[in-house]
Design a protein around this nucleic acid. Structure first.
Length: 378
DNA sequence: AAAGTAATCAACCGCAGCCTT
DNA sequence: CAAGGCTGCGGTTGATTACTT
């Protein structure tokens, strides 16, 4: 603090906001003589008690002809976002694509509007990818629901019921992401509890490959779970649906056969992890001069439908596999993914998001911490 | 209407890189 | 090649304005 905003600096040069008279002097001088390449000398010659730097800034950000002022249009907004995704905080480079807009104006607009907008959308304004903390919150919500699921599984186990039937039904109707979370939790439970929980450490992979189960509903005739079964465990339909579908980061795949599944069109207002990434890449933007701007590094001449692999996830981890196996799988998948870069850029983005998240947060310690947090809540 | 708070944006600061000597 | 000056850029500040309580 303490920097004086108006008045004079130590050498007697004026600082702070420019007066109309100062503007007039500067404009008159430059109109007659140009600013040349020596801003330092300009104010003395022009009769301004300002430093050259201040004159240059005033001219380039405010007085220069052709400067467009006022609200940014939707097109400009989109262009700035896409260019920022491509260029980062290179405000002058971004400004060069928006005729009449200054880097300072764009920077201000970004910091006061667009940055917040991206944050509201759950996107990191730096990377334009879904925020980790945002995902983290979703995961915590998911895990909160998982508590109920684990309780149910435990009851089933104690009652010597057909727990596979329940788990199968649940698992078939969820996606690999949630299953991975569940599997990690089960793995931890199996290794951290001394009670008879061995059966909890299920290897779920065979169940995942089993795609004959019906939709998740206790009353479904195709379900292997009898009517009222979930309810008897204190699990209602919405709770289960919440568990499986509440995280809008992942599409709910109720269809056992999703070979031809296509992602739904994305809603800009949707706080959707995948949606954000898929949405951003296909935007093809033209600026006011009809200048084509490549903003996504991909061939934007066509707009293909997003295939299911937009949501592709790594292979499952065996419940008995140690951490290094998991890491290898993640790394292998990363490698495979890199090889497929040209074919499926959207898949790449989502895959990276996923592996980033899992790689950083899938350690046993992480899950133990989460479980502890959950169990300590009143 | 007044006070408090948030948003906006012009302007400043400091640094990096280029240019000149 | 080194040193100093200049410019451009990005980050930050704080005065002003708008909005809310």
């Amino acid at each position: 603090m303490g920097r004086s905003r108006s008045g004079y600096d130590e050498s007697g040069l004026k600082k702070g906001p420019w007066t109309a008279e100062e503007d007039r002097i500067l404009v008159d001088y430059i109109n007659k003589n140009g600013h040349g390449s020596n801003w330092r000398a300009l104010p003395k010659i022009a009769g301004l008690n300002r430093c050259g730097k201040s004159c240059r800034l005033r001219w380039s950000n405010y007085l220069r002809p052709g400067i467009k002022r006022g609200k940014f249009s939707q097109e400009e907004e989109k262009l700035i976002i896409n260019l920022h995704q491509l260029l980062g905080n290179k405000w002058s480079a971004i400004a060069s694509h928006l005729p009449g807009r200054t880097d300072n104006e764009i920077k201000n607009f970004w910091n006061t509007n667009l940055r917040k907008k991206l944050l509201r959308m759950g996107l990191d304004p730096v990377t334009h990818r879904p925020r980790l903390d945002h995902n983290h919150n979703n995961q915590l919500q998911l895990l909160s629901n998982l508590q109920h699921l684990l309780l149910a599984a435990n009851i089933l186990n104690n009652n010597n019921n057909n727990n596979n039937a329940l788990l199968s039904t649940l698992l078939i109707n969820s996606d690999h992401a949630k299953l991975q979370i569940l599997q990690n939790m089960l793995q931890i439970l199996a290794t951290t509890t001394t009670t008879n929980n061995n059966n909890l450490a299920l290897n779920l992979e065979p169940l995942l490959n089993h795609q004959q189960f019906g939709p998740l509903t206790s009353s479904s005739s195709s379900s292997s779970v009898p009517n009222g079964f979930y309810e008897s465990l204190g699990l209602n339909e919405s709770m289960l649906q919440n568990l499986i579908c509440s995280n809008d980061s992942f599409p709910c795949q109720n269809q056992p056969n999703f070979q031809n599944f296509e992602a739904p069109p994305h809603d800009d207002n949707q706080h959707n992890m995948n949606g954000g990434s898929c949405m951003m890449k296909s935007e093809n933007v033209n600026n006011n001069n009809n200048e084509k701007v490549v903003v996504d590094g991909t061939n934007s001449s066509s707009t293909p439908t997003t295939p299911l692999n937009c949501y592709s996830l790594p292979n499952l981890v065996s419940a008995s596999s140690p951490d290094h196996e998991y890491s290898n799988k993640v790394n292998n998948n990363n490698n495979n993914n890199n090889n497929n870069n040209n074919n499926s850029p959207t898949s790449t983005n989502n895959f990276e998001m996923w592996t980033d998240f899992m790689y950083e947060e899938a350690s046993d310690a992480y899950w133990k911490h989460i479980i502890d947090q959950e169990s300590n809540q009143p």
